[in-house]
Design a protein around this nucleic acid. Sequence first.
RNA 1: GUGCCCGUAGCUCAGUGGAUAGAGCGCUGGCCUGCGGAGCCAGAGAUCGGAGGUUCGAGUCCUCUCGGGCACGCCA
Length: 587
Amino acid sequence: MMIRDLIGQIIAQAVASLRESGGLPDVELPPIEVMRPQIAEHGDYATSIAMKLAAAAKAAGVKANPRAIAESIATQIRETVEVVPAYNLVESVEVAGPGFINLRLKPSWLLAQAATVVAAGASFGTVTVGNGKRINLEFVSANPTGPVTVGNGRGAFIGDTLGSLMRAAGFEVTKEYYFNDFGAQIDKLGGSMEYYLRLALGESDAPKPEEGYFGPYYATLARQTIEFFGNDGRALLDLPAEERPSQIGKAFAALIMGDIRQTMASLNIEFDVFFNQASLDTSGELQEGIEQLRAAGYTEERDGALWAKTTLFGDDKDRVIMRSNGEPTYFASDVAYMRNKFNRGFDRLIIVLGPDHHGYITRLKAVAQMLGHTADDMHVLLYQVVTVKGMRMGKRLGNIITLDDVEEEVGADVTRFFYLMRSGDTPLDFDLDLARKQTDENPGLSVQYAHARTAGIFRKARELGVTPDQYENADLTVLANDPPGELSYELALMRQVLRLEEVVERAALTLEPHHMTRYGMDLADAFHLFYDHCPMLKQGADVPLAVRNARLRLLQAAQAGLARTLALLGMSAPERMERAEPDNAPA
RNA sequence: GUGCCCGUAGCUCAGUGGAUAGAGCGCUGGCCUGCGGAGCCAGAGAUCGGAGGUUCGAGUCCUCUCGGGCACGCCA
């Protein structure tokens, strides 16, 4: 059980027994919230239940003093933790301010948790709130008409990391990419690629389509194709004119989709399912979806077209589902796809979308409801725009910056960290100059460096003949006798490590992965401070053997916490940092 | 015009209705010969865009307002 929940249980038990004995106003009990005080002096956890109770009593016309209520609850908590052995982690219970009850944990208990953390290892930080609920998490879903941009990248990292966090929080998550490789967009791609293929073959007078996809990316793609296939590249161009756009488009969509998958893979973004929109048509689900809405009475014929009455569910206008020419619209695919997801048994669908899609939210929620689910079963997670500061000009393709460009500049790990540092609700200004820095100023590297440092110390320990069996069962309570200065760093580190499970839970429930990067920085800071102030192996320093062993044990817990944090962020946990010269940017 | 997001330190941003609003970068001063190095310690810096309201308590919730961003197809 999470420590915070255990504290909540203790408080709840104390409140319950106090109510039984008539020691509290007889009003409905407000929910007991356990929070973390902002100020360390206020303890590890706090609750405002006394003030809430007093307010409820006042509303019911019963006289109540919040501080007095807090005092009696606090007294009851002290008794409770005294008699229940499992509650033997509370050091003190104090009433403060207008009626807060502050609880402080025993330093010896906190330190002893190192063993729990190390034992949990790679599964440390796993919580159960998700309760096995099945989640479909769709993100990126960019059509294969061009490279992945820095904008798409944000959805990619948010989605991928959220998936990891939700899994750690006990949800069953399927990560999905939806794409379309046929239709008007792809034909347009075909037209553009025909033009670039001809240019690559030396036809300088090739006609340029009025509309299409243009830029160095496509020119390069055409050149590479010609280089690779030689004159066989001509085969596509010899097709009948009416087949060329779709055939060439389909061929290049496949190539581009390969590029996209490669970009994703090299940035450690993983999908469980790549869902092709075309399959909805061939399977008949497109028609079935339309039929289901029609049967449910949610459609209407107007001007020769078939409309879905989304306005019944708050949309500002109805949406065409089948054009007057009998062609289903893209919206029809949305319906069929969502229906497909629900039919696969997901409890909740989450779609990560860019800022240009916010108009889709009510529409998609309307579809969910027309399919017999609630608006909440279909959640749209929007993120804001991405700008990049400090990109070197010259090497990039035209005026767009791709995700590959960014990765090339700063590497996959730092790219991920920087993308996840900000809440999705605010615009992201990617600071490449900071991301390039190979020092501790770079917050992403700082977390990895912390992990590398732990590994380095264990390497050093081995060199000095200190083997794991010497510290693996070390008793950390000896640290409680350390000088206050050093103990405070040890406790701060342990507290940060233990906070991981709360961060995982919060990030998963709020769908906000950025809490994890913030936490990573806090954890790394706590570790670096510990490292700076609490020598473990320093030669000649006056560190008793028992203290050394206890610190190495604590170090193991810190390493486990850092490794897990990095894993959840999709970053590598290096055993050592490569030293790069400032002029020598990493690959 | 309608709708959504944002406005917090010089910059980029955290902040779960709670107590004295935080971090990173930047800035100022002091210190540092060895666990591994890119440092350590201390400090300055904020009328949380503005005005009302709800609440015992508001950066957080509601209304209005100012400023910035984005979106509003029988496109996909």
